[in-house]
């Protein structure tokens, strides 16, 4: 033995304590609470599946679920494709490339709050974007006052902020694409578009699946962008509320319905886990090909 039997546990103690107290325990407790009528003040009574029955009849839940789902479906394609194109552009080492890469990554460093505030100002009814629209002969658009446009604006912000993040993932993957494949294709007379579809895309497919999964999960979890662009209200009449926002609004404060919020959290967890399992399955199929 090179160490006493309890030594490893001393090394693990802080990490395990944080993990169990602040992730594992709250997670298990969330599942228990989902089947109770707990409020902010008391732990409540066991109520079986009442919370889930209520959810099925709650128009707010369906609205939030629809918004989150719509959000996810709309942000994934641009987030899979655009960062790849940017990565291909930023891959080649040319003078000043470090500056460009760093600049492209800036929106990722800035917090969702900073980004949200900047875009709230850009998309203001009298903001910069509307000034451009007007200069081009259009009429001012209520980006932040219409519930559909608010969702679309928020998606644009999410995509804008994700470009640099997924670019880095693609950059790392592109470094591993064998050069001779490209050269062979070039010898065969394949143009850049042809090479993109028949060399780059196939060899990056696992990375693209990963980016699709990450952006889907993050899209479904959206909170900050919607919160800030709507000034915390979830849009006119709360029509742009998403799942996480609904959980936060339901469970928070002295009037918080902890039981119902936990049931909503449970559904969120199941959906996200489902997304993850689908990705793993897709990845496994890739391996078999």
């Amino acid at each position: 033995m090179t160490h006493r039997p309890y030594t490893p546990w001393l090394f693990l103690l802080p990490g395990l304590a944080v993990c169990i107290m602040f992730t594992i325990f709250p997670f298990l407790n969330m599942i228990v609470l989902a089947f109770t009528d707990a409020s902010a003040l008391g732990s409540g009574q066991f109520t079986g599946v009442d919370n889930f029955v209520r959810m099925a009849q709650d128009p707010k839940f369906w609205l939030a679920a629809r918004n989150s789902l719509l959000y996810m479906v709309c942000v994934v394609p641009p987030l899979v494709l655009l960062p790849l194109l940017i990565a291909m552009l930023a891959q080649k080492i040319v003078p000043g490339i470090g500056i460009f890469r760093t600049a492209f990554f800036t929106p990722v460093i800035a917090s969702a709050v900073v980004v949200g505030l900047i875009w709230t100002w850009l998309l203001d009814s009298r903001g910069l974007v509307n000034n451009v629209v007007e200069a081009l002969g259009g009429t001012r658009i209520g980006f932040l006052t219409d519930s559909t446009l608010l969702l679309v604006s928020s998606m644009v912000v999410t995509v804008w902020r994700g470009l640099g993040y997924y670019m880095v993932i693609y950059l790392a993957a592109l470094a591993n694409v064998p050069k001779d494949l490209h050269e062979a294709a070039m010898v065969d007379g394949a143009g850049p578009v042809r090479r993109f579809w028949s060399v780059t895309v196939p060899s990056l497919r696992p990375t693209m699946v990963l980016v699709a999964a990450l952006s889907a999960v993050n899209g479904f979890r959206v909170f900050s962008e919607i919160y800030l662009l709507s000034g915390g209200s979830g849009g006119p009449g709360g029509a742009s509320t998403t799942m996480v926002m609904l959980i936060q609004l339901t469970g928070r404060g002295l009037t918080g319905e902890v039981g119902y919020a936990s049931a909503l959290s449970f559904v969120l967890f199941v959906i996200l886990l489902g997304l993850l399992l689908i990705t793993l399955k897709l990845n496994r199929r890739e391996d078999q090909l």
Binding site: M21, F22, T23, I24, F25, P26, F27, N29, M30, L33, V217, R221, F223, M243, V244, I247, Q248, G251, R252, G256, V258, A261, S262, S265, F266, L268, F269, L272, L273, L276
Partner: peptide, 15 residues
């Protein structure tokens, strides 16, 4: 790692 933070938000607040 598999537990999304948003799903334990309320329960973590109780802790």
């Amino acid at each position: 790692i598999l537990v999304p933070f948003e799903a334990i938000l309320i329960s973590l607040f109780l802790v």
